[in-house]
Amino acid sequence: MTLTDFVSFLVKNTKTIMEYSENHFTLVLLAVGISLLIWVPVGLLLTKSDKWAARVLALANTIFCIPSLSMFAILVTIPMFGLGRKSALLALVLYAMMPLIRSVYDGVKNVDRNVIEAARGMGMSTKRILVEILVPLGMPIIFAGFRITVVMTTGIAAIATYIGERNLGRFIQEGLVRSNTPMMVTGALIISIIAIGLDTILGVIEKRIVPKGLRVSR
C-alpha cells in the first residue's frame, strides 16, 4: 500500500465514492433531522418533571450502551424493519436520544434561577421565557450535544453498510472481504476525515455561539 495505490484508487473510483458519500450524507442528515425533531422537544418537556427525566435518561443511557452492530442486528430481525434504510434510521435516531436529550435537559436546567425569576418579574410568559431566555442561555450545552450527535451518527452510519446501506462503510466491508487494502484504507480515511472535519467545524461554531458573558476559559 503506497500513496500511488491510494491516489489511483481515488481517481478510478470517483463516481462510486461520490455515490456512496451522497448516500452516507442523506442518511446522516435524515437521522440527525428526525432526532432533532423528536428529542429536542422531549428534552424540553423533561425539564418540567424530574421524576420522568430520571426515568427517560436512564432508558436513553441503556440504549446508548448497546453496541451499534448489535443494535442493527436486533432491528434486522424485527419483521417490520428488516434490512435497509428503515432499520438504519431507527438505530441512529435511538442512539441520538442520549446526547440530545441529556444536553437539552442539562442546558436548560443550568440556566441561572435568578435570571428566570427576573424574566418572570418583567412579565414574560412561560413560552417567551423558554424561547428568549432558556434556549439561548442553554445553547452552548445544547450545541455540544448536537456536535456529539452529528459526529457519532456519521461514524455509526458507516456500520449500517452491514445491513444493506450503500454508503462509505461499504469500502471497508468490501475491502476486508476481498483483502483489497487500498479500498479499505480509502474508505476508512474518507470517513475519518469527514468525522474529524465535522467535529472541528462544529467545534468552531460551538465557540462562536457562546454569549460573551458566558465564556469560560478552558
Binding site: V151, I191, I196
Partner: peptide
C-alpha cells in the same frame, strides 16, 4: 486524543489491519 476520538470505530479497525 480528541481528534482520535472523532475517528469512527469501524475506520480505526479498518486502519489497524494493514
Amino acid at each position: 486524543l480528541n481528534l482520535l476520538q472523532a475517528v469512527p470505530g469501524i475506520a480505526v479497525i479498518a486502519l489497524a489491519l494493514p
